[in-house]
Amino acid sequence: MIGLWKKQDLLAFIIALIGIWLLPTMISTYTLTILVIYGMLGLSLGLIWGFGGILCFGQAAFFGLGAYTYAIAAINIGESTVPMLLAILVPGVFATLFGAMMFYGHLTDVYLGVITLVVTLILFKFINSTAGPQYAIGHARLGGFNGIPGFHTLNVPGRTDIFIWGDTLYYVCALALLVVFFFVTWLLRTSFGRIAIGIRENETRISLMGYDVRARKTILFAIGAAIAGLAGALFANWGEIVTPGLFSLQQNAEVIIWCIVGGLGTRFGPIIGAAGLAYLKFLLGQQTLIDNAIIMGLILVIFVLFLPKGLVPATTSLWQSIYDRWPVRRSGSRRRTRSRSATHHA
């Protein structure tokens, strides 16, 4: 267990703590909270797509599912600890069943994309049509396109009268992202994670080695969904309302754009892509000259055409090549730039 951790993890941990501490001096914590939440959502897709090779066009479905689960459970239970756990559990279980249906049917790339997209659309259309009072779970009315407002937000476990909001919510979300990040780091270094990367590289070879590819992909898919569910629950606490827009195509597209821009096959890439683009969108939202969608669309097209590996891998390899060309190189062979086939989908 100890052997799995490396020196740079400590460095990442310290930098992250300093970042969490310093960022509120530059950006308001209200905005930062949503950036952190989107970072977690980006990381969830980055895990299953970048490391597992599963192109899920419906990551927003799990995000929305987590948010709705939290809202419905919070109204019925009246506190936040159990709803939080449910918001992780329900998308996880849903993804296990859904993933098992797909992976045991040997669905790959485009067909997987179609099905995940279609399931998101089903959820979107269904939730959108539940405006009538007959659609209720316990005391919670689903509310159709108006969404569910007015649920019990995050409180200190065991004390339903002390709410976590404002600055405190930011720190809670940031710490949650840190925990998720190190969980993903740990997962990728276990044999499970290494085999998942192997499946991404060559599924047939791994299955011929005797590993059950279908079960492993299902589990990875479920873990990604659970993380997205947690992000959804935090989003519900931040926004204090959940709407069907969480399941929309727009939301789906954005998660994918974050991952492409940040860089697939890295852990930092999707987080940086998500937070960066969400902040850009926030800045763009303050002007009315150019529509947001134009910029987002152009960014996606340009990255696919010119920088398909994303920002983080591109910067790393740039840095690496500068380091290599440095005249006073230490003795030893030329450092090889590890070319990750991040955008490789066989």
Partner: peptide
């Protein structure tokens, strides 16, 4: 756009998704 991406199924999907956002933005404006 698409000319550069023949044979890369997933990349064409992503690039055209970007184009769809772009067109939505233009028409909205």
């Amino acid at each position: 756009v698409i000319r550069h991406l023949y044979g890369r199924l997933v990349d064409t999907m992503l690039a055209t998704w970007g184009l769809s956002l772009f067109f939505i933005g233009i028409v909205t404006m």
